[in-house]
Amino acid sequence: MSLLTDSGISIDLPHRWDGQIRGAGRGFTSHSATTVAPLDATPTAGSVLHASSFALPAERGDYGSGAVEVMGGSDILICLLEHEPAAAATALFRREGLPRVGVADFSPESMQRAMPGMSGFQRFFQVAGRPFCLYVVVGHHVTRGPLVRSAHAVVQTISIVPKS
């Protein structure tokens, strides 16, 4: 395991995993709206964390466009995106604390951009007033059980520090 920390977010990455955390307002390289879902066309206002069981491409959107295209059937992509602080007061982010990543919660319809065979998971929550979206993609929906359990184990290592 290898601890990656920035912007008050940390994650313990397993061996063979890539990870990146970028601070507020930077986001990751986005792609044209012709192939990327609208949410991915605009960089997220807050910090963004990407963790993957495969080599993270340098060019990718906040929601993983550019990365999901190179995922294999046994790969996992975890995206944690922080939203504007004001969003924490909305109903969408009412849930407090990191969500559990369950097998039944994954669905191809939850993908930001439908990819054959893949499955996605998306939840909104907040930690001490910091609103986040957790988006997880596994490479194969039908055999997602072990992949989801691995993703859940990695998500549980995420630690978020309240902003002062």
Partner: peptide
């Protein structure tokens, strides 16, 4: 541009 990164090169 700011931020932290980890790149796995072993075991891949």
């Amino acid at each position: 541009l700011g931020g932290a990164a980890r790149v796995a090169v072993t075991g891949v």
